[in-house]
Amino acid sequence: MAEILAAGEAIERALALLEGGDVVAIPTETVYGLAGDASNGVAVARIFEAKGRPRFNPLIAHVADHGMAYRIAEFDPLSAKLAEAFWPGPLTLVLPQRPENGIHPLVTAGLDTVALRMPRGFGGELIARLGRPLAAPSANSSGRISGTTAQAVAADLGDRIRLVVDGGATPVGVESTILKVEDGKLRLLRPGGIAAEEIEQVAGAKLLRGAKGIEAPGMLASHYAPGASMRLNAQHIVRGEALLAFGRNRAENWRDAVAIRNLSETGDLREAAANLFAAMQALDRSGAKTIAVEPIPFDGLGEAINDRLARAAAPRDKIA
């Protein structure tokens, strides 16, 4: 099983493993990431191996500062403006790669673009000490629920990796928002930890939705899935189901649920996002074959929450 070390005492151990081409589960502000040296093909292959991740699904390269980012990718003026406003933080930008930028082709899945993010806290310090970007998808088996605590990561991947760095529960709780600028227009590839309204205010333009195939991480039709099936926008509960609740008003027959977790009693979408994956994992452990999910608004971070729920509920034969 993986060793679990507190973030305050783990950096030297984590660095030694990364320098040796190994992978390490680390806390970020969004979810825990499974990190490996983005310039080392062996390390990147170990990420795919540990996750059981499809090789055509690209990874995010995490950087320590703007200088590192500008050495890897070409920034148009709007992307640069967004990076200045939201980095470090839960924003990923998909950008054209610079030639000979050192990022291993496995990270970008053969695309001519690269997804970049600058994390806060332990992740940023670790990258700065390493001096190279880290490829770091969510620290979970591919297609399954993302880990928001060290214990959840160890329960899922503990027999496949050597170290989990414990930084406590992640404050944002859903993955980063992914954006791409094309011909001066801003496209949302994946909703996430920064609401679309916040981005539009800084950009001074409306976001376009939709993608042309898999252009960035987290875009598979089925993803973030528990073992149980998911039933969304539930207005009533069938006996034997588990209930993922939201707010103060309950679905009809809610007392028939075998287990209940409320994402936010007060209807706070930030609290709901932070609690989402842990609540799904808890209900999955209840033994229920189906998790019924009460309706959640789409405004603000509700867009990201509903995106994750829709992917969790998608037919499992869509997981490549």
Rank of each mutant, 00 (worst) to 15 (best):
Ala152Ile: 06
Val153Asp: 03
Val153Pro: 05
Val153Thr: 12
Ala154Arg: 12
Ala155Met: 15
Ala155Gln: 15
Leu157Val: 11
Leu157Cys: 07
Gly158Glu: 15
Asp159Ile: 04
Asp159Leu: 09
Arg160His: 11
Arg162Glu: 15
Leu163His: 00
Leu163Glu: 00
Leu163Tyr: 00
Val165Trp: 04
Val165Ser: 02
Val165Ile: 09
Gly167Trp: 01
Gly167Phe: 01
Gly168His: 07
Ala169Cys: 04
Ala169Ser: 12
Ala169Leu: 05
Ala169Gln: 15
Pro171Tyr: 06
Pro171Leu: 06
Val172Pro: 01
Gly173Asp: 02
Gly173Arg: 00
Gly173Ser: 02
Val174Trp: 04
Val174Ala: 07
Val174Met: 09
Ser176Leu: 03
Ser176Arg: 07
Thr177His: 13
Ile178Asp: 12
Leu179Trp: 04
Leu179His: 02
Leu179Cys: 06
Lys180Gly: 05
Val181Met: 11
Val181Trp: 01
Val181Phe: 01
Gly184Phe: 11
Lys185Glu: 15
Lys185Thr: 14
Lys185Asn: 07
Leu186Ile: 05
Leu186His: 03
Leu186Met: 03
Arg187Leu: 11
Leu188Gly: 02
Leu189Gly: 08
Leu189Tyr: 10
Arg190Pro: 02
Arg190Thr: 09
Pro191Cys: 02
Pro191Tyr: 05
Gly192Trp: 08
Glu197Ala: 14
Glu198Ala: 15
Glu198Gln: 13
Ile199Cys: 05
Glu200Ser: 13
Glu200Pro: 08
Glu200Met: 08
Gln201Met: 12
Gln201Asp: 13
Val202Ile: 15
Val202Cys: 12
Ala203Pro: 13
Gly204Tyr: 10
Ala205Leu: 15
Ala205Val: 14
Ala205Tyr: 07
Ala205Gly: 09
Lys206Asn: 10
Lys206Trp: 08
Leu207Trp: 10
Leu208Phe: 14
Leu208Ser: 11
Arg209Gln: 06
Gly210Leu: 10
Gly210Gln: 09
Ala211Lys: 08
Lys212Ile: 05
Gly213Asn: 01
Ile214Trp: 03
Ile214Ala: 08
Glu215Phe: 01
Glu215Met: 09
Glu215Thr: 03
Pro217Val: 07
Pro217Gln: 04
Met219Pro: 04
Met219Thr: 14
Met219Cys: 12
Leu220Tyr: 04
Leu220Gly: 02
Ala221Trp: 07
Ser222Ala: 12
His223Trp: 09
Tyr224Phe: 15
Tyr224Val: 07
Ala225Cys: 11
Ala225Phe: 06
Pro226Tyr: 09
Pro226Gln: 05
Gly227Lys: 13
Ala228Leu: 04
Ser229Val: 02
Ser229Lys: 07
Met230Leu: 14
Met230Lys: 00
Met230Phe: 08
Met230Trp: 00
Arg231Cys: 02
Arg231Ile: 01
Arg231Val: 12
Leu232Asp: 04
Leu232Trp: 01
Asn233Ala: 13
Ala234Ile: 07
Ala234Ser: 12
Gln235Phe: 11
His236Met: 10
His236Leu: 14
Ile237Gly: 01
Ile237Tyr: 01
Val238Gln: 02
Val238Leu: 06
Gly240Phe: 10
Gly240Pro: 02
Glu241Tyr: 01
Ala242Tyr: 11
Ala242Asn: 15
Leu243Cys: 09
